[in-house]
């Protein structure tokens, strides 16, 4: 019997071997396709000087990723500031729900990239446009999950609030938010994941400094190894973002507290 912890290392390595095999075969079949060792060498070069800055068109990978992250967090922060109050409102008021719901249902399935040309026309500037697109991406899961959290507050807790004669303000902060916060963080985690997906495509369209345009630029430079490096780094950062959001969400979830 192989111990479990060895399995946890061994099985992914086995699969890595299979993937590298298919990749090498592809590199042989398609002339110019970078081999795994090409990508490894290039990765070391790219990571050895991540902060260089030779002007707008030529900057290190850390600056590219940093710019993309800054846009994501900008749009994400605005989406939280707008989405949480709207979600609270439509969760607590049946009339607000009736008013907002048809528009949320219609706008939610629209690809955020469809807003990009309109945003570009309005803002006439790529950075604000990208932030707006991320805002539109992030807001729907935040609104929907916040409202869901509010509606999942048990009638019993609300009866406690009524007997104690809590003011509406106290009711929100002492009863509704503690129940809704785990739901809000679920919405934020979903939003951040989608935002990180969308920023790559948005930057390919807008240009400027950022990981999305960097990948598109390397395609135009015929530097395919860098495209693969971009894919790997986007994946690693996406994984880190999701893990961090998960940790923060658990920290604010009363159900995960006091039950050690």
């Amino acid at each position: 019997m192989v111990p479990k912890y060895l399995n946890a290392v061994f099985l992914p390595l086995l699969l890595l071997g299979v993937v590298l095999g298919i990749w090498s075969y592809t590199a042989i079949k398609i002339p110019g396709f970078p081999t795994p060792s090409d990508v490894w060498r290039e990765l070391l070069v790219v990571l050895s000087n991540p902060f260089y800055n030779n002007g707008a068109g030529d900057q290190g990978i850390a600056l590219q990723l940093g710019n993309s992250l800054a846009r994501v967090f900008g749009g994400f922060a605005i989406a939280i500031a707008v989405g949480v109050p709207v979600g609270l409102l439509i969760g607590m008021s049946k009339n607000a729900y009736t008013a907002f719901n048809p528009y949320i249902q219609i706008l939610k399935p629209v690809s955020p990239l469809a807003w990009l040309p309109l945003a570009l026309f309005v803002f006439k500037e790529v950075n604000t446009t990208a932030i707006f697109v991320i805002f539109i991406t992030s807001i729907w899961p935040i609104i929907i999950n916040t409202a869901l959290g509010v509606r999942s507050v048990s009638e019993d807790y609300l009866n406690v609030a009524r007997v104690l004669q809590l003011t509406p303000f106290e009711r929100v902060f002492q009863i509704i938010l503690p129940v809704a916060v785990p739901f809000i963080f679920t919405g934020m985690r979903l939003s951040l994941g989608i935002a990180w997906l969308v920023i790559v495509a948005a930057e390919m369209l807008t240009g400027g400094v950022g990981i999305g345009f960097w990948i598109w630029d390397e395609y135009n430079n015929l530097n395919y190894a860098h495209i693969i490096i971009g894919i790997i780094l986007i994946g690693v950062i996406g994984y880190i973002l999701d893990t961090l959001m998960g940790l923060i969400a658990d920290f604010f979830d009363y159900r995960k507290r006091g039950l050690k």
Binding site: S154, Y157, N159, R162, V163, L164, Q165, P178
Partner: peptide
């Protein structure tokens, strides 16, 4: 006419707030 603390209720399912000690 409305609920009030001079008429305290002990609910069947206790209704304690689970995020408070």
């Amino acid at each position: 006419t409305a609920p009030g603390p001079e008429r305290a209720v002990v609910f069947q399912n206790h209704s304690l707030l689970p995020w408070l000690s």
